[in-house]
Structures are given as C-alpha cells and as structure tokens.
Design a binder for these strands. Sequence first.
DNA 1: GTCATTTACTGACCCAGGTCAGTTTAATTT
DNA 2: AAATTAAACTGACCTGGGTCAGTAAATGAC
Lengths: 231, 231
Amino acid sequence: MPNKDQYTGCTVSLHRCRCFDRLSREEHAFLDERSVLINYKKGEMICKKGSFASHVMFMEKGLAKVFIDDGINTLVLKIVPSDTLFGLSSISEHNNTFQYSVSAYVDSEIRQIEIGAFKEMLVRNPLFAKEVIETLSMNSTQVNGRFFCLTHKQSYGRLADILICLSDRIFKTKDFDLPLSRKELAELSGMSQETVIRMLKKFDADGLIGLQGKSIQILDHPRLKRISETG
Amino acid sequence: MPNKDQYTGCTVSLHRCRCFDRLSREEHAFLDERSVLINYKKGEMICKKGSFASHVMFMEKGLAKVFIDDGINTLVLKIVPSDTLFGLSSISEHNNTFQYSVSAYVDSEIRQIEIGAFKEMLVRNPLFAKEVIETLSMNSTQVNGRFFCLTHKQSYGRLADILICLSDRIFKTKDFDLPLSRKELAELSGMSQETVIRMLKKFDADGLIGLQGKSIQILDHPRLKRISETG
DNA sequence: GTCATTTACTGACCCAGGTCAGTTTAATTT
DNA sequence: AAATTAAACTGACCTGGGTCAGTAAATGAC
C-alpha cells in the first residue's frame, strides 16, 4: 500500500468523548449538580479567548466555531457539533483562561460544567481522566490535519474539503441549507470571501455542486473528493 | 489595554511537563524499569507516523522536529528540545499508532517509556494524569498559535518568528550555529528554500542579523520582533 | 409598502512568493 | 588535491489568490 497520507481541512472530528460513560451514577449526579444549561442565539459569543475559564462546556444541541484571531484575521480551529465536549484547553492550572473563542453558528444549547468539579472528577476517577486525555489527543490530531491542509493545499482543495466535511460530518445529507455566510465559509477554508464565491460558482458551473443562495447540494462527491486530494 | 493577540510561529513551548514530579519513589522506579534509553544520530528518524506506538518518549538531550507530511510537503508541528515529553498523542486506546513523525536535528538521547506502563500510571496516579492533561493542553495552545501564524502572517514575519524562537528558546544565545539546513529552516517557517535564503540575506543586509553560513547572530532583536508582529 | 443595511456577487488589478533552471561554494570522498 | 556530491545562492518568470471598488440581491426595519 502506498504511504501517501491524506489530510483534510475538515473541521469536525468523528471522535465523541466517552468520558461521561465512565462515571458512576453518583459521579454523574455530582457533575450534573455543578452544571448549568445556557442558550445562545445564532452569532452569539459563547466564550472569549483570554477571559477567565470557569467551566468546560458540552454542546447539547447546536453548532459553533472554535477560533482564534488577532483582530484582523480569524482562524477557525474546529467546529463543535452536538454532543461534543469542548473548552478543555482551560483545564490547565497555570492558564486559567480560555485559549480560544467560541461563537454560535446556530441557536445552541450548551451545558457549562463548573471547572473545579470537572478537575476534581479527573482526580477522583482515573478512567474519566483517561478518556479526557484521549479526547485531547484526538483533538490535536484533528487540528493538525487541518493545519497541514490550510498551509499546503490550494484553495480549490480546501473548499472541496470543507464542502465534503459539511455534507458528510455535519449535516449528514447531500442537500443542506448553509447556516453560514460566505464570509464565514471563507474563514473556515482559510481564504478570502471573494475567492470562496468565485470557487463556489465554478464548482456550480462544473456540476460538482448545486448552488442556490444558502442552499447547497453535493452533486459529484467523488470528483469533489478528488479535488480535495489533488489540491 | 488593547485586545490584540499576538501569535508567533514559534516551535517550542516554554512549558515543561511536571508529571514525573508527581510520582512517588516506587512509581518512579516502576516507569524506570519499563524504559529504555536510545541514541539517535543527526537526521535519524525517531518515530514514523502511522507505525505502532509502543511507547511515549522523553528527550533527555538533543533536538528533534515533530512533523507530518504527505510525501511532497512537510509541516513541522513543533520542535522538541531537551527535557521534554513527547509522543503523547499515541496514548489513545483507539489509535495505537503515532500521529506524527519525529526526526533528530542533532544527535539525541531519548528515553522510551513503555506505553502500557505509562497508561497504567495514568490510572494509578491521578495527579500524574492531571499533569499529562496539562501538557497536552499546553501543546495544543502552542501549536494553535503556530497554526495561526503560518496561515495568516507573511513570510518575513514568519522567518523573524523562527529566528527569535531559535535564539530565545532553543539556543538561548544571540549567537548560534544553526544545526539545520536552509531547507529545514524553510519547512520550519512554512515557505520555500529559495525564499528563506533571500530573506535571510535581506535581514543580513538590513543589519537585523549577522549571517555567515550556518552561523547566525541576532543583531537587532527589537526590530526583528516588530517584523514578527507586523508582517 | 419604502428605505436601510447587510450579504452576495463581479471585474480589474497586482504582488508575494513559488517554481525552475541555473551557478557558486562548501563538505566529503577517494 | 582532484573528483563528487550536496548545500547555498541567484535570477527570471509566472500565477494563485488577495485587495479594492464597485453593483445586485436579499434581508430586516419602520
């Protein structure tokens, strides 16, 4: 077999954190009592990089982007779909602030788990800790693949990646209404708004996708895949 | 205070893993007995992405690059200096292979710790696990900063970053002999060999650095820093 | 409904930096 | 020291995709 590793700019890991499966009924209750459920509206900021991290978060239902920025440019690290634990980077003792910002793509329901309780659970239940380690490690691998892709693939490939990712992993259908603006799609694939628009039109003209405003359908998945792979 | 976050393409975290400080004498001995010490020569492969991960590693002395590649392009995720734990991404149960490759920049001495023993320790000693989580989390933050930088800064800024990083964090002197070729410096700053050479020459001509072959001295640290920040 | 504002789109321009094809210098080998 | 090979460097060329300056369409406000 060939040793060609393929990376994608995909933003969502297939990994689901199993840490809560490791908890006893009491432990589960312990965390539950130290959690609150918050609703966010589309576009709302869920947490801001640099602010005090008083909790880790669990996306009950919704979709959000995890990103860092310098005031001018934005880099989307990953997307958080339903049933995902996030904000783990703030477990660190010496860095009790969020290491990234998160904002809602759509109306979202998020459970905040008090960080002290979460940390206590790490020490109380080693299997829980082990799953958290697993999740952190899978996250890194995911982000690294995306890192490779954004630095070494060209734009067509990156856009194809994102379209495939949206279809396969996020909406799980070939035909979906994009809750993102072109601008957001652009920062997701690491390029300018204008380029995204031009390339979407190109894909549409070439019969790879169907495009009517926010509604996108994947018409030629294999060819899209090939574009993603070849650049 | 302004809310402008600065990211650098820096490859080395200042974080040192304190997990071993959490071990009792016996636990220390336990891991020691399940470790081996291996020497690698400059340029030698320390581990290959995709191969079975039978151990985590500790850099006793040396310098190595952690990278992923697709056969054509290489992306250096980070540099591993002395006294650093690495290869943690292979702790995962469901992914018992290395998630990246590592190769030695200079002759290096590396302790391999049998992964079963390491995982056992994670469960046996929760404070140990907590420190490992901390390290994973710091690693991510570090790589994310680099990610931002390589995707959003231009080449001069990235090269300035790397030079500052080499001087401040790796060699800890303003005057050092680079153990890397221009090609390696290029992949470190995410650009082509030719561009690195041209820019080094430019920095030299502008009096920012002194350049004689492999020997580099940082002459104008503040200005270099400014270049790193602005472009 | 009309107006205002945001989002989507188009075209023209341009330049950072990659690629290619060399030459020069340094490091190894014999 | 001559011969190879690899690394460092130079110049010419070219293009992917960013930026800017608009227009068109969609969405929301009143």
